[in-house]
Structures are given as C-alpha cells and as structure tokens.
C-alpha cells in the first residue's frame, strides 16, 4: 500500500501540471475580458491600455510560464519568509489578482477562516446527521422513519439553495428576527458572548448547506447498507451469535462504506472551494464568493490559482479515498 501511495503521489505531479495547463487554456479560450465591469463611460483606448498594464499583451506561453514560476517557485518562498523571517521572495513578483492588484494568495488566506467555519461545519454536521439516518433507514426499511427520511431528504435535495437561502432569511431574519441575514466576516470570537454571536450568524448558512449534504450522503448510505444487509456474511455473523449491534455497526457498516467514502471524499475539496450560491446569499464572502466574483470579473490569475488549488485537493482526496478502500476491504489491491 505504501509503494502504491508513493507511486500515486509521484504520478500526481505530471497529472496536476497537465490539469493546470488544461485550466489555463480553457480560461484563455473562454470569452471574457477583465475590463467587463469597468463602466461604459471609460473609452476603449483607455481599456486597452489597462489591459496592457495587466500583462495581457504578452503571448500565451509566456503568461503560462510566468504563472507556473510565480505559483510554484515564488509563492513557497513567500511562505518560508512568512514563517522564518527570511527574505527569499523580496522584490519578486507574486501571482497578482487583476481586480485588486494584490497577491492572490493573501486574499485566499484571508478567506479561508470564514469558509472553513461555515462550509466545513455544514459538511461535518451534514455527515454526522446523514450516516445514522442512512443506517437506520436501511435497517428498518420501509418503516415510518425510513419513509419520512426519504421524503425529507429528497425534497431537501431537489430544492435549490437559491430558494432555501432567501426562504430562511424571510422566515428567521425578517419575520422572527432570530438570526442575522448578513454574515459579519470581521467578527472575532474571543469569549462566550462573541461565540454565541458567531453561532447565531452561522446557523442559517449551515442549515442550507447541511440539508444538501445530508440528503445526498444519507441516500448513498441507505442504498449501500441495503445491499449488504442481505449478504451471506451477515447471516453467518448472526449465526455466530454476534449481537445485532455488532453485526450492523461493525460488519455491515464497514462493508457499506465504500460508496459513502467516495462521496465524502468528492465533497471534501468543496469545503475549501466554498459554496458559491449560499455564500453569496448570506454574504459569507468565502472562497466560493471569491471564485464567482473573479469569474465574473474575468480575473484570470485569481481563477487559475483557485481552481488549481482546488484540483490539488481533488487529486489528494481521491487518493485518500483509494487508500481507504484498501483499509475497509483488504481484498482490494492496487499493485
């Protein structure tokens, strides 16, 4: 398994380089212009000069190479400088966003806390609710609990966040006035009171996001449990006199986890990637909002960097999922 992991990690480097090139070319090919949000009152000659000032006049391969150097060579130096007080990166040009004219990574670092707080919490809450629901629904298939779970999760999944978000705002922020409708990103948690405030402002976006996660994961959990509950080994385990709890929660659950692990691993990078619509509705302004504003403003360095970080996480978590398959089911071998 170790050699497999090392081989995959080494293989990941060319994969990621290829992905970065694919993303770069895709962004180049896509229609769009960083000057789209500049008002029409600014004449085209001025816009052309502004484009040149952004470095758009240079040929494609030069810009790609520059980005590679900035991202893989200069940014790590900045990181080292930050931790050890060295000056490797002094005076070197970092990946600069076209919208803000500031280093992309600084903004990303600024956005990570609120993204992890909201999207990360929602994901964990979602998983924690979904797995028990899935297990129990399958164990008591077609019981009232199962029927209710199915109903709620399917409705929850088929109603998009662009509707649930405003709906919750109208109910809980406008009419009841319990929770704020705008997330305060400058809020600092330092005592119990401020934690309570943080908790209150997180509830609505977390609810919207957790609903989607719960619905999805509980469906896969239930289906997979159902497949395994009728297998011969379950009968054997019961015949051995194992308690029902051990049979279900150890034997069946372990064998049912493969699709669930896949789904969870596929969703993990999204914690970093943020949730675009929910972030915009509640003005959480995390990575998701950063990405969508960068896309609309055609801020290519920002989009390129964000999607690439995203790609790294996707490759990483899919690798973790593959390793976990082997742990869950030792018969699965890759070499």
């Amino acid at each position: 398994m170790l050699t497999f992991t090392i081989r995959r990690l080494v293989l990941a480097v060319p994969t990621l380089l290829f992905i970065s090139l694919a993303i770069f070319l895709l962004l180049e090919l896509a229609p769009g212009d960083p000057m789209a949000q500049v008002p029409l009152t600014v004449p085209p000659e001025v816009k052309e000069k502004m484009r040149l000032a952004l470095g758009l006049g240079e040929p494609l391969h030069v810009r790609y190479w520059k980005w590679i150097v900035q991202f893989f060579w200069i940014e790590p130096q900045v990181l080292i400088d930050h931790y050890f007080g060295t000056t490797f990166a002094e005076g070197k040009l970092r990946v600069i966003s076209w919208q803000t004219r500031s280093p992309v990574m600084d903004i990303v670092v600024q956005r990570i806390p609120q993204t992890i707080w909201v999207v990360g919490t929602a994901y964990i809450v979602g998983i924690l609710i979904a797995i028990p629901i899935g297990i129990y629904s399958a164990y008591k298939q077609y019981s009232m609990f199962d029927q209710a779970g199915t109903f709620v999760s399917m409705i929850g999944f088929s109603i998009p966040p662009f509707f649930t978000g405003p709906l919750l705002i109208v109910i809980f922020a406008v009419h009841l006035g319990w929770f704020p409708s705008v997330y305060d990103t400058t809020h600092v948690v330092n005592d119990w009171e401020s934690f309570k405030l943080q908790f209150r402002q997180m509830i609505l976006p977390v609810m919207v996001l957790a609903l989607q996660t719960t619905a999805q994961i509980s469906r896969y959990m239930r289906a997979s449990m159902l497949d395994n509950l009728n297998q011969d080994y379950v009968r054997t385990a019961r015949a051995k006199g194992l308690s029902e709890f051990v049979v279900v929660m150890v034997h069946v659950l372990r064998n049912s986890m493969i699709p669930v692990i896949t789904v969870i691993a596929l969703g993990m990078p999204a914690i970093f990637g943020g949730a675009i619509i929910t972030e915009v509705v509640f003005k959480v302004n995390g990575i998701g909002q950063l990405l969508i504003t960068a896309l609309f403003a055609n801020d290519l360095p920002m989009v390129q960097t964000l999607t690439f970080i995203f790609a790294v996480l996707i490759v990483l978590f899919n690798l973790i999922a593959d390793i976990l398959y082997g742990v869950l089911d030792p018969r699965i071998r890759y070499d």
């Binding site: 405003p166 006035g177 704020p180 409708s181 705008v182 915009v280 509705v281």
Partner: peptide, 19 residues
C-alpha cells in the same frame, strides 16, 4: 460590506434593519 445580490441588500436595510 460588499457582496450578495440586490434583493438581499435591500432586505438588510428595509426589512431587517441590519444595515
């Protein structure tokens, strides 16, 4: 504060009074 959409901005001022 920046971000969101016109609807929720309007709500935050005229309906919830947060802004």
């Amino acid at each position: 504060k920046g971000g969101g959409d016109a609807t929720s901005a309007g709500r935050a001022v005229m309906e919830t009074g947060e802004f």
